[in-house]
Computed example of a mutant assay.
Amino acid sequence: MTGLWVLVATLVAAGAVGALLKARNGRVRKAKPAVRALPAPVTDVLDPASAVTLVQISTTFCAPCRHAKAVLAPLAERTAGLHHVELDVTNSPEVAQSLSVLRTPTTIALTPDGRELLRVGGVPKGPELLDALRPHLTTRTP
């Protein structure tokens, strides 16, 4: 009988963890104040002509990364002032570490000067991301 209770408790705990992870996936989070400078691979891809650059942190064997790109690339193409770049950190984990990225895909919205606006862990939801970015999307002149 004890084994049955252990099994039930394990299933309940696993279900709770699964529900928590599902709820957090794709959620837009406000940026925390940056204390470190951005690594060079990130500053190199920032677009000075765009109000916001979406830097998608990916790895080679990440299936959700392809889904994130399928959401972000068209969103950036049809939105003025928005630029999307995918940065593969498979061979440079120090870049992910310096950005405090713990999972891929993670999308970080950055201003041209490198200030983080927000980040999304997992596959972003296009409309929610666009709503969160709308105050920052202004037409810039180079």
Rank of each mutant, 00 (worst) to 15 (best):
C62Y: 06
T2P: 05
V101S: 05
P135V: 09
V55P: 01
A80Q: 10
T138P: 01
V85W: 02
R36E: 12
R66A: 14
C65P: 15
L46R: 07
L75A: 12
R140H: 11
G114M: 11
R78A: 07
H136M: 05
V6T: 12
A23T: 06
D131E: 10
Q97G: 03
V120Q: 06
L129P: 13
L54D: 10
V71H: 05
K125C: 00
R66G: 15
L129H: 05
S50E: 09
A76S: 14
A68Y: 09
G18N: 10
D47G: 01
A9M: 09
L11P: 02
G121M: 08
K125A: 11
V42G: 04
T107K: 06
T10F: 10
L130I: 08
H136D: 09
T90W: 07
V6W: 07
E128P: 02
K125G: 08
E128T: 13
T141V: 08
E86V: 12
S98C: 04
W5C: 06
P142R: 11
P105H: 05
T10G: 06
L75V: 07
L82A: 12
C62S: 07
V28E: 02
L38F: 07
R103F: 12
L102V: 13
P105R: 00
H84K: 00
E86S: 13
K30C: 02
P105L: 04
Q97I: 06
R103Y: 13
H84T: 13
A132L: 05
L87H: 12
T79S: 02
V45A: 05
L75D: 08
K69N: 07
P33Q: 12
A63Y: 07
A40C: 00
R27A: 07
V8D: 05
L54N: 05
T106H: 04
V28K: 01
L110N: 01
L21R: 15
A16H: 04
L38R: 03
D44S: 09
R103V: 15
D47R: 11
V123E: 06
M1L: 13
R27Y: 00
T59S: 12
T10V: 14
G81H: 13
R27Q: 12
H67C: 00
T60V: 02
P142V: 15
R29Y: 13
N91F: 15
L118P: 01
A51C: 03
P33D: 04
P74K: 11
A96K: 05
H136V: 02
A63D: 06
H67W: 03
R66D: 07
P105W: 03
N25D: 15
R78D: 11
G121C: 01
R66M: 11
V120C: 05
V89S: 09
W5D: 10
N25K: 06
A80W: 00
G18K: 06
Q56G: 06
T104F: 10
L11S: 04
A63L: 14
P48G: 04
A13M: 12
A14D: 08
S50G: 04
G122P: 13
T60A: 02
A132K: 08
V28W: 02
G18S: 10
V52R: 00
S50K: 13
L99Q: 11
T138E: 15
T2L: 14
G122D: 07
D47W: 08
V8T: 11
A13E: 08
